[in-house]
Amino acid sequence: MSELVSTLALTKADAPASLIAAPTTRGWFGRLLRSPSALVGGVLLLVVVLMAVSSPWLFPGDPLDMVAEPFLHPGVDAAHLLGSDMLGRDLLSGIFHGARVSLLIAVVSTLLALLLGVSGGLLAGYYGGLADAVLMRVTEFFQTIPSFLFALAIVAVVQPTLLTIALAIGVTAWPSLARLVRAEVLKLRHSEMVQASAALGATDLRIMLRDILPNTLTPILVSTSLMVATAILTESSLAFLGLGDPNAVSWGNMVGSGREVIRTDWYITTIPGIAIVVTVLALNLLGDGLADVLDPRDRK
Rank of each mutant, 00 (worst) to 15 (best):
L221P: 13
L135C: 10
E235G: 05
V255Q: 02
A151E: 10
V158W: 11
L209P: 12
V138W: 04
L209S: 05
F150H: 04
S147T: 13
A166W: 03
G201K: 00
A183Y: 02
S147E: 14
A178W: 07
W251D: 04
T139S: 00
A198Y: 03
T224M: 12
S191G: 08
G170P: 08
P175M: 06
T234D: 14
T218D: 14
P146R: 03
E235Q: 15
F142H: 02
N253W: 15
L149Y: 03
P219V: 04
I207Y: 05
F150P: 03
L135P: 04
L186D: 02
T218V: 15
S176R: 13
A229V: 14
T234R: 10
A231C: 08
T139A: 01
P146K: 12
V255H: 08
T164N: 13
M136F: 04
V134I: 13
A156R: 06
A153F: 05
F150I: 11
S236A: 15
G201D: 05
V255Y: 00
R179C: 01
A153K: 03
A198R: 14
E235D: 10
I154C: 06
F142R: 01
L149W: 10
T144F: 07
A248F: 13
I220L: 10
A178D: 08
L243W: 11
R179P: 01
R137I: 06
T224W: 10
K187I: 07
P160N: 05
R179H: 08
R179E: 02
T218R: 09
V194L: 00
R189P: 01
P219S: 08
L163Y: 11
V158A: 11
V171M: 12
A153W: 13
Q143E: 15
F150Q: 13
